[in-house]
């Protein structure tokens, strides 16, 4: 899945914006399907290190748009499997090193496609092998996870690990309690969470920390009023959300902020009508795709998070997304139970 930006620009083909913006489902489907026909472009190889993430974003967007079969299932699985390494981890693309981020995307893709059987068919005991790769990255003293063998730590990796392990049904392989304690140690004075203890609150990191506490059913540890206040304060007068105080709005925060609010049952604290309108202004209604903000180039990252944001707000024409897993709700019900 290419992450090449453009060709379209969000809001570019709407010189006079109508009051009631519509979601252009077919255009977005066509846009995502077209991404892999653009391999001759300069930017294509620059995003190789994100390829497996990109595939997850594109596939999830298509599911949310109600076109789950728009990408050929067997080719998707073949590509995912070509990124798997002997140690059970996945890399962004063949020939790169395995890493937590891509292993998580691989598990999400396989779960979405109901393809854990295919994983077993490719690699005997494959599910457990993947789970053990993830489990081995846990630092048993602190509960955190490394992204790879090189020791970089980030609350993202802790979330990725628990998300993937819960999809695989193998949470018992890690010290969940230690992970929960680590997340608690990242709670900041302003109610938010950062990449580690004391790191600045950031909406993306909040999503991962609240995600960990949701998966482990420990939301009782969250100061929901304080966090909800900080999160809802991210909404700007134009309806869009930013990720930190005094930063610009960006469609992707519709997801990071929106899902966090949804997990702590405070999504109604923001103006959803204004946010929906802002997200719809970021779509290219002619060529498909969403940009970070109106006037910028579209890409698949902002496309999936724009759609997922609309889904949280039950926008017509978008399938329901699970606020923890960023995957279709019915698939999560099938894989981990409702």
């Amino acid at each position: 899945m290419s992450l090449v930006a453009g060709p379209g620009r969000g809001g570019h083909h709407q010189p006079a914006l109508p009051d009631e913006l519509e979601l252009c489902v077919e255009k977005h489907v066509a846009y995502i399907k077209s991404l892999d026909t653009r391999k001759d472009e300069y930017e294509y190889w620059l995003t190789e290190h994100l390829r497996l993430n990109g595939l997850y974003w594109g596939l999830t967007a298509l599911h949310l748009l109600g076109h789950p079969d728009a990408l050929p299932r067997s080719e998707v699985i073949d590509f995912v499997m070509s990124c798997m390494h002997d140690n059970g981890g996945f890399s962004a693309a063949p020939g790169h090193d395995p890493h937590m981020l891509y292993t998580c995307s691989a598990v999400q893709i396989l779960a979405t496609l109901d393809a854990f059987g295919d994983l077993e068919a490719h690699v005997n005991g494959g599910k457990e092998k993947v789970a053990r790769y993830i489990a081995n990255l846990q630092d048993r003293d602190t509960g955190t996870f490394n992204g790879d063998g090189w020791g970089e730590k980030d609350t993202r990796f802790l979330f990725n690990a628990l998300l993937a392990l819960s999809l695989l049904g193998m949470m018992h392989l890690v010290d969940v309690q230690k992970g929960v304690e680590y997340v608690q140690s990242c709670a900041n004075f302003d109610g938010g969470y950062g990449t580690g203890p004391g790191a600045e609150s950031h909406a993306g990191q909040i999503y991962t920390c609240v995600g960990v506490l949701s998966i482990t059913k420990r939301l009782d540890l969250v100061d929901k009023e304080k966090l909800g206040a900080w999160l809802s304060d991210r909404q700007l007068p134009n309806g869009g959300l930013n990720g930190r105080p005094e930063k610009k709005e960006d469609v992707c925060y519709s997801w990071w902020v929106g899902s966090s609010l949804a997990m702590i049952d405070r999504l109604h604290w923001i103006d959803q009508e204004k946010l929906s309108k802002f997200i719809l202004q970021c779509q290219d209604s002619e060529l498909g795709g969403f940009a970070d903000r109106p006037g910028d180039m579209v890409d698949v990252f902002h496309t999936v998070f724009g759609l997922a944001g609309l889904s949280l707000m039950k926008h017509p024409g978008v399938r329901e997304v699970d606020p923890i897993y960023c995957m279709p709700k019915d698939i999560i019900n099938r894989v981990v139970g409702g």
């Binding site: 590509f79 070509s82 020939g95």
Partner: peptide
Amino acid sequence: PQDDGGPNPLAAIAYSDEYS
């Protein structure tokens, strides 16, 4: 050369010549 996951792959990787 790059092995990008078999013939006719979905996410084949194309490079600029120099980088490649």
